[in-house]
Structures are given as structure tokens and as C-alpha cells.
Write a protein that binds this DNA or RNA. Structure first.
Length: 300
DNA sequence: GCATGTCAAGTTGTG
DNA sequence: CACAACTTGACATGC
């Protein structure tokens, strides 16, 4: 069975996630900052619950939680912990509901920390911030029962082996809570599946295969072979594999193929995936509509 | 109301 | 050298 996953936000569904910025918060007294943050965090956890309900109602088996669910949590000036917030108990209660709903309905939850998280950096400050942010993601993941914290390696700085070594060393700075959830994903500028599969094997963590990135940055390994290796790595941990797919906004023939299209072109869906038991996150701008359309196009 | 500029963080490739 | 792209626009401000 193929399990399709939604990413972060919705196109048509009235499910919204709120945000705020450090600049805005800085203008408020601490008390007001915490009140504002409390409202946002509570609203966002309620939105995750709605997203899960929508998924359950529509046969969608995975949801990627927006990274800034608790906005500015790790910020050096305006950061906070849940217990600082007036609605801390309510927020934790919502998270507990998300966790049990997820378990009952078998919906997988993942997190995808953004590009500022660079475990391969040679700058101590960057690594420190990255660890900090990943630890926040770990706390969030534990609260809501998210299984995966998926990251890119980041910079290669002109020397991939050395950068991967740094990443592997910095991996051990992370708590078990984060290490047990961390996965690596191939990107479209530096690290290919061939680069990452051995590293993942060494670190004992799974590999998330993004086929669009692979097509933008090929490594000579076929899609079928890469899929197979990804599947066996996940099977080693007794877990269901995770794939990502998207289509190029302007097609493969003209311009930059990296920007994502609104929908998935069924031609871009690899035939070798059809018979697998895997989770496939649909990275398309039309969001839930793209998942529905793809199911129709593939005759599912 | 609506248009517009801004928002914590990193790295890379393109024009 | 500026800017877009990346998993993703939303929010605050000012007219």
C-alpha cells in the first residue's frame, strides 16, 4: 500500500497556522509576548488536530508539521519554554490528543527543520544553533508523537567527505530523543543518495529519498536501485520508508527544474514505487488538492 | 480594506 | 554582486 503524506499547509481547507516574528515580540513587554505566543501555540496545536482529522477523513496517512509550530521557541532574546506560557496546560493537553489520535488512526507525523540547520558547518555558532533548534524539534516530536525529524546535511564547503565527517561528529552532540528520530535527505545541490546511504548506515539512521532532488542532482544510481536501497535501510530498523516527490514548475525542458509545481505530473511518479509499502510526502503547491489529483491520475 | 515591506538562522547557483 | 531557491507565506504597518 502506498501512503501519501501532506506537507505543512493547506490550499482549500480552512486550516491555518499562525506565526510571529522576533521584531514584533521585541516591542512588547515580556508578559504580553508570552500571552501572544501562548495564543499562537494553542491555535497551532489545534490546527494540527484539524489537519489530522482531515487526513483521517480522506485516507491520508502522513502529515508534516510546520517547523515553527511554536514560533521563536529557541530565539536568543524572545525564546521561551511551554511552561512560560499562560496556556501551557491546554497546549500540552492538545499535544496529547494529537498523539493519541495519530496512534489510533495510524497517521505518521514528521518534522522538516529548515535550511538554517547545518550539522556539517565548521562554524561552532551555527552548529550550536542547529543543535538547539533540533532539540526543540525533539521536544515537540515527543509531545505530539512525531516519528521523524528529517534534515538535509547542508553545506559541502567544497569538500564533501570532510563535511560529512563533521556532520557525523556533530550528530553525537544530539540527545537520544533527537538521534532516534533523525533522518537524512538527499538535496538538489550537494548531497546525492550515493553520498548519504553509507553515512546513514554508519550512523544507524534512515534515509529519506527525494526523487525530485535526485533528478535535479543525479549520481549515476538508478531510481529503482536507490528506492530499493532506501527500503532495505528502513527495513533494517523495522520501519516504513519515507519518500518525497514533486514536479518541476516549468517542466524538465526549460529553465530551472527545482521550483515545485502546483500538482504532481503522473509521468514523474516512478513505476517502481507502485508495489511498495512506503510513505510518500507530496510536495506540491496545491497541497491537499495535489494529493487528491495524483490518486485519480494513478487510478488509486 | 488593501497593498506593501518585513521577517532568526545558511548555503548554493543563477542571472 | 544581488537575488532566488529551499518543506512553506503570514503578519504588521501604513495608506
Amino acid at each position: 500500500m502506498l501512503r501519501f503524506g501532506l506537507c505543512c499547509i493547506f490550499k482549500d481547507q480552512p486550516i491555518k497556522f499562525r506565526q510571529t516574528t522576533a521584531t514584533t515580540l521585541r516591542k512588547l513587554p515580556r508578559q504580553d509576548q508570552l500571552y501572544k505566543l501562548s495564543e499562537i501555540c494553542l491555535a497551532n496545536t489545534q490546527s494540527v488536530k484539524k489537519a489530522l482529522q482531515f487526513s483521517a477523513d480522506n485516507g491520508i496517512g502522513a502529515f508534516r508539521i510546520p517547523t515553527p509550530l511554536f514560533p521563536r521557541y529557541t530565539h536568543s532574546e524572545v525564546g521561551y519554554t511551554l511552561d512560560d506560557l499562560p496556556a501551557a496546560d491546554e497546549i500540552k493537553n492538545e499535544c496529547a490528543k494529537i498523539k493519541s489520535f495519530r496512534e489510533n488512526k495510524d497517521i505518521r507525523l514528521s518534522l522538516h527543520p529548515d535550511q538554517f540547520n547545518v550539522l556539517s558547518s565548521f562554524r561552532e555558532e551555527v552548529v550550536k544553533n542547529t543543535v538547539n533548534e533540533l532539540e526543540y524539534q525533539g521536544i515537540l516530536a515527543e509531545l505530539v508523537g512525531a516519528e521523524i525529524i528529517n534534515v538535509h546535511v547542508g553545506g559541502s564547503y567544497g569538500n564533501k567527505p570532510e563535511s560529512l565527517d563533521r556532520m557525523a561528529r556533530n550528530f553525537h552532540l544530539l540527545s537520544e530523543r533527537v538521534r532516534l528520530r533523525l533522518t537524512l535527505e538527499n538535496d538538489d545541490v550537494s548531497y546525492t543518495p550515493s553520498d548519504l546511504l553509507p553515512v546513514c548506515d554508519e550512523l544507524g539512521i534512515p534515509f529519506v529519498y527525494d526523487i525530485h532532488h535526485h533528478r535535479c542532482l543525479p549520481d549515476g544510481m538508478s531510481e529503482q536501485e536507490t528506492s530499493g536501497k532506501c527500503v532495505s535501510l528502513w527495513q533494517k530498523f523495522g520501519r516504513e520508508p519515507y519518500f518525497h516527490i514533486s514536479s518541476p514548475r516549468n517542466g524538465w525542458q526549460q529553465g530551472n527544474p527545482r521550483p515545485h509545481a502546483d500538482y504532481i505530473d503522473p509521468q514523474d511518479f516512478p513505476p517502481c514505487w507502485h508495489h511498495l509499502n512506503v510513505t510518500i510526502d507530496i510536495e506540491a503547491k496545491a497541497k491537499e488538492l495535489a494529493v487528491f489529483q495524483l490518486r485519480v491520475d494513478l487510478g488509486l
